[in-house]
Design a protein around this nucleic acid. Structure first.
Lengths: 193, 193
DNA sequence: AAAAAAAGTTAAACTAGTTTACTATAATTT
DNA sequence: AAATTATAGTAAACTAGTTTAACTTTTTTT
């Protein structure tokens, strides 16, 4: 069953009965995107939160000067969404674009309340997922302030060694908040050591 | 009643019955800190989450080079905690220090499960609080990447006009990720316009 | 009210990271 | 297999923000 990874993910946080699993699966739906397609576009209302079965996405912000800033990547067994847009149903700040063919299972805003009523435990799941995401986000702020570009790059390689192989270098540079040219210089420096 | 602001805060997110309010208040406790005192110290296990009745705190990270990086401020009607430390009961990454005499109401890790069992609705409160915090944190990452120091300062003044009056300038500089000298230069530039 | 400590200002020299512009190498498409 | 497009590397000139070090102002303590 293609939904098994999602159930496994959830059971790391809470226990579900068989009937709860059935309800849950009846209220989510799976979808495939091709490389290059958008799951969410800046300005749209984000209607869903997506759990990745396979593939890879980038979440980015396009600023007034037309520059793209990558705020996160996601791969299989991660979640992605524009939470701000999802919870308030206001236009999304971010683009979520697939950088590989990607298969997801989606939770929809329109039946989220219903789902939470049927399985109140899910509040706890979402709380715990948000706790984890917030801690990671705060750590990233600190790293951006306290580390140099080279140190940030090394930390990224250490934290997400898989990403390095799957994501083009210029996107990693954007995630790190530096230019692709400077990341290239950093890599050369590291190689000559 | 000194706890009223906390109940008002909570009722912006969920409804509580009178008996739930009573249970809640029986499981939290209030405490006063003097200016300069620490609510949490880097390395300690964070045992509580604090709702501010009055006063002002700063949350900061001391890096290996001995530099302090302020990651957030809190004033009355805000929450503060090292959530990472609180939820996993591992040593705190951050210091939370009072920069004014501060009165708080604290939720404790040790009876949080009990409290959630008595008032399951609180899961939803915490989820919503975390959603809001995560959205703010992500926006901050984007601002740090897409704006210049001057633009970040102007945005800060716009978002938190009260902070500017209550917090010393060198702490604002740290929050913005720049030196106090450079913030001083920015303010002069803005004044001569 | 004096002394001391904390916070803020100024300016010159410096550096981490950007910009621009060109070249090289994959990876896709025809 | 050739042509196109996307990705990566290099280097010189530049700039936003840092460092250092001295000075001024404000706040707190005695």
């Amino acid at each position: 069953m293609q939904e098994q990874p999602l159930l496994d993910y959830i059971e790391r946080y809470i226990d579900l009965t068989d009937s709860e699993k059935k309800i849950l699966l009846s209220k989510v739906s799976s979808r495939k995107y091709l490389k290059g397609q958008y799951i969410v576009q800046q300005g749209d209302i984000c209607k869903h939160s997506s759990y990745l079965i396979s593939g890879c996405t980038k979440t980015s912000y396009l600023d007034k000067k037309g520059q793209e800033h990558i705020i996160m990547f996601a791969i299989e067994d991660w979640w992605t969404s524009d939470i701000g847009s999802f919870v308030t149903q206001t236009p999304a700040d971010y683009n979520i674009q697939c950088i590989e063919d990607t298969e997801v299972i989606q939770f929809f805003y329109d039946n989220q309340e219903e789902l939470l009523q049927d399985i109140p435990k899910l509040e706890r799941l979402f709380r715990k997922m948000l706790e984890k995401a917030l801690v990671a986000s705060q750590k990233r702020i600190v790293r951006n302030f306290s580390l140099t570009a080279k140190e940030r790059y090394l930390k990224f390689s250490e934290l997400y060694p898989i990403m390095e192989q799957r994501v083009p270098q210029y996107m990693i540079a954007s995630y790190l908040g530096i230019t692709k040219e400077f990341l290239s210089r950093i890599k050369r420096q590291l190689a000559n050591t």
